[in-house]
Design a protein around this nucleic acid. Structure first.
Lengths: 348, 348
DNA sequence: TATTGCTGTGGTATCGTTATCTATAACTTT
DNA sequence: AAAGTTATAGATAACGATACCACAGCAATA
């Protein structure tokens, strides 16, 4: 069904070739392509058939030059770790359903890189942006937004930006996980985290504190355990003293992993010597020496919602440009998955 | 340093604004931007300064319309699992150093999706393509290549395509892993795989077979164990008979994981009841009930080489278009990492 | 009948950049 | 000194699509 337009051999057929083929003006072809409703059905049919005959595909570069946006969304994340790559898959699936491409940028958790990338995104005339912020400049995003590019914040809100956001009940989830430990008799519960300055982790630590305070217990937070060595040092200190906590809440996936590794190296058994609950599930959580009890969240639902929100905005923006957009917030619940590591599992 | 060009307020400054600011013609500005060597150093300096003063950034849409390619490379993968997202990070890092963006497409392991995406890539005028094929049509890639877009195959060669390729010594690596088991006295060694039809897995199975045959042993291959249930069934069958293999070689990461999970569920201990060696390392390989011995490969070196190869081609294509490109093949070695699961580790 | 409004269509300028051609100055060469 | 060669730089026409305006045709109104 693909034949080079008779006009210029070898070249992609253009709107002009279609116009000639259909015996209409170029504007009529353009109107058909863009689904204007001022074209008579008969004419539309003629044009459609001509388009198919010459194998025409609109040239994105030319459309972009005239101010239209590319059928492409941006997807900015700190990295493509398990969690965010699940998000990506879900988002890309939605984008593909709308026949959009996805441009991924990983900032390496650097606000500076995020800013730089946001600047160069301006030139790419993308139709929308899905962002898990690395702490970049809200002002730049606001600027993008004001220039007509819909923005949806995923997993974390962006400071100083009034945009759609799809988040997780970090605080409540953490609270639930910690409360579970408390209900099973633990009195000394520590909390370990890797990125204490990241929104989601801060929230979870806050939830941990709330649960502890509500039970009249003293919080012990170690929010910046960034390496296996540091974790091992921390855990090692416990194994040598009597002040060892009886349980630990790990506020993020990587903390759970490092914690398990460190406990393993130091020779502390889970849950006999120390109970563990982690935030965020991962592939091998149930085959570790001891299967890990986790507060689980669903990256795919999260990202799917965000992408759908984004495309709702994109479609809206195409139709009516004047209306004020009232930002939506969607907050997903978490689910506590009981396994052996908290010492209370049915099969433990 | 960013001021709207005096010409039209609110709009991005264009080459014309720069020309006016520098008191030169637009072509001179264009020549400076594109590094032509026919501009006097003094003039070039004037233009550069004007560019900085008005905050000019070239409009990619307009350049693309004139036939130039966007500063963007495509990155096509089956999915963004651990291995490929490591590849992505390395590739994007190289791209960023060249001031290029990266467009990621995950095909969901579907050749059909890969084909569809390749078709729509044609319109995006990308500068180059890095592809881990899902078995899509080599013909389409050849077409892209002939239209002047450099292509580099990553991890797997593309059937029927003569392009740069960066691969891993899958066969030799598997052979080494299996030979290790043989050298430690195992006589009955099975091989499990998930995607028996994927190039890398086929190669590894081939390596397994070679090692077995070289030792006069009979290969037992199960190449399509696609779910935990199937794996459990397979392993369960062994635990009930006397014909149980004494060791297993898992030909891919996911197989290792499923295998460990299944063995765990069925109650077989590693390495006492059965020894295991896997291909491809993963985050938690050393904290599993028993740390896993693996044949490891480096996704980051792999992808970095591929990206560098790609940019070498891109730069070459920009300068001289006539020269024939002689495809390069780079093949990375693997490394056997001894842990406890093979039953011979120093600390076991 | 003349006027207004509406519907469907086409002509043409325009978006920002680069290729092609032309123009000028500054050198050689004979 | 005249003519030919370089080096630089500018004017202008594309690239393909869309926005704006113009206008033909027809119905409803005055």
């Amino acid at each position: 069904m693909k034949s080079a337009g008779a006009g210029r051999p070898g070249r992609q057929p253009t709107i002009i070739d279609v116009a000639r083929e259909a015996h209409v003006g170029v504007m009529t072809v353009s109107r058909v392509i863009n689904n204007y409703d001022t074209v008579k059905p008969v004419t539309r049919a003629k044009v459609m058939s001509a388009i198919a005959r010459v194998g025409y595909r609109p040239n994105d570069a030319a459309r972009m030059l005239k101010g239209m946006r590319a059928r492409m969304i941006g997807f900015i994340v700190p990295d493509l770790s398990d969690f965010f790559s699940s998000c990506f898959h879900a988002a890309q699936k939605v984008a593909m359903q709308h026949d959009y491409q996805t441009m991924v940028v990983a900032t390496g958790r650097s606000a500076a890189v995020e800013n730089r990338q946001l600047d160069s995104l301006g030139n790419h005339r993308i139709s929308g942006l899905l962002i898990v912020t690395s702490g970049g400049d809200g002002q730049r995003l606001k600027h993008l937004q004001e220039s007509g590019i819909p923005v949806v914040a995923l997993d974390r809100p962006v400071a100083g930006l009034d945009a759609d956001a799809v988040l997780v009940e970090n605080r409540e989830g953490a609270e639930q996980g910690v409360r579970h430990l408390i209900e099973h008799g633990h009195k000394s519960i520590a909390c370990v985290g890797f990125d204490g300055d990241v929104f989601t982790v801060r929230e979870r630590i806050e939830g941990y504190k709330q649960a502890m305070r509500a039970a009249g217990l003293e919080p012990q937070v170690f929010a910046d355990i960034q390496s296996l060595e540091r974790m091992e040092e921390l855990v090692g200190r416990w194994s040598n003293t009597k002040k060892k906590p009886s349980a630990i809440f790990a506020a993020q996936r990587i903390s759970s992993i490092r914690l398990i590794q460190a406990l393993h190296r130091v020779g502390l058994r889970v849950p006999q010597d120390i109970a563990v609950v982690g935030f965020d599930d991962f592939e091998l959580a149930d085959v570790l020496g001891t299967p890990l009890t986790v507060v689980s969240q669903s990256p795919t639902s999260l990202a799917q919602s965000a992408a759908e929100l984004l495309f709702k905005q994109i479609e809206q923006a195409q139709q009516e440009s004047g209306t004020e957009h009232h930002p939506a917030k969607i907050i997903f619940p978490t689910r506590l998955i009981l396994r052996a590591s908290c010492g209370c599992s049915p099969k433990a």
